[in-house]
Write a protein that binds this DNA or RNA. Structure first.
Lengths: 195, 195
DNA sequence: CCAAATTAGTGATCTACATCACACCGCTGA
DNA sequence: TCAGCGGTGTGATGTAGATCACTAATTTGG
């Protein structure tokens, strides 16, 4: 549980929080005390399917995926988290039960970590932070709904092209296999979309 | 904007809130002042695709669907809301932009309504209510994620059987056509799954 | 620095599901 | 009361995309 936070990272984090709530200097400093900082290596596992989930993470730098391995051993990625994204197994974290997802670093990754206890404490202590998390959760929910709608309305190729246009930089950082697991399409079919 | 709330409904609503936060009698009474009450008829429209969304709704009784009509005129149902469910177009409501979804009563429906302004006010005035909405939003997000995962991992028949086992009573209240639009499967294919 | 593993492209098949077409039934409302 | 319309079942056919099988290229870690 180290405490050496780079000023640049904390500034970016502050900007992130201030998208939803405005904070004074002392308020932001107070908020930071609830977080810890970690550096992970590529392939490191943050959350393992079936085990407890004690933290929610904010990605300072790097890239993390949240995925589910089904009974046939096939992977399904339900979320990418790059710089300035939050990631955890929501259900397991909030209800304190076993993880459905594997959360794994796809690159060397730097994180701010918030434990379950600290999450409840920061929300109880700082109304503004509870407000932040409410707004953030609503926002995530809306985005998730949009993604579900994409599944209901678009075929695989359209979903791929949508991803290309929305996150062009992400495509460079991930293998096609990984993209396929996110798009819900086989590696072979994705390959045939060309480009 | 009437103010005649049946005691039974308000008691159920209180129980709903108390799943996430505990409220004293005066606190609950204060909270209720931010809501209004409405009765709708079958086929009435709460939100129309393309227009502004001024309220979020809690269903006292009845049944409401949130759906999207695509360019080909095909309907996709993103959510059912029965008794004790919240429903609105999240994105349009929170970001105050145009609705993606149609929200329509499938039965005569009774609602508690919370306007955008009142939502922000109740959250600012009552920390506990902000806490409620934070927890509720996280819960909804996790449920939504689970549904997306179902799409990624299960075929149409499995999704149908899952729905049957999870919401057996819902099946009685909806036409197969409507169920098909929720499951992301054609009416004909659903029909062939048989009873 | 090289062996092993992982990633990527491509053809041949297979299959779940969509779409089209039609027939039938039970409401509902002028 | 009966015309019409939405809901439902079912056959025939079309198709997106899965799966299998193989080869080649690229990455990686010991």
């Amino acid at each position: 549980m180290r405490r050496t936070l780079k000023p640049i990272s904390t500034q970016t984090f502050r900007q992130h929080l201030e998208k939803f709530v405005s904070l004074s200097d002392p308020e932001f400093e107070q908020a930071m005390t609830y977080f810890t900082h970690r550096r992970m290596k590529k392939h490191d596992v943050l959350v393992r399917q079936g085990s407890k989930v004690n933290h929610t993470y904010w990605v300072v730098s790097g890239l993390v995926t949240s995925s589910y391995t089904d009974v046939k051993g096939k992977d399904h990625i339900i979320q990418f988290a790059t710089e300035n994204c939050w990631v955890t197994d929501q259900n397991a974290f909030y209800n304190q039960n076993e993880a459905t997802f594997n959360i794994v670093c796809m690159e060397d990754t730097e994180l701010f970590c918030l434990s379950f206890e600290n999450r409840e404490r920061i929300c109880a202590d700082m109304h503004k932070m509870e407000s932040f998390f409410r707004k953030k959760a609503n926002d995530s929910f809306a985005k998730q709904q949009k993604r579900l709608l994409t599944y209901l309305t678009s075929d695989a190729k359209m979903r791929y092209e949508l991803l290309l246009s929305e996150y062009p930089q992400l495509i460079q950082r991930l293998s096609k296999k990984t993209l396929a697991a996110y798009l819900g399409v086989s590696r072979e079919t994705l390959s045939r979309f060309g480009k």
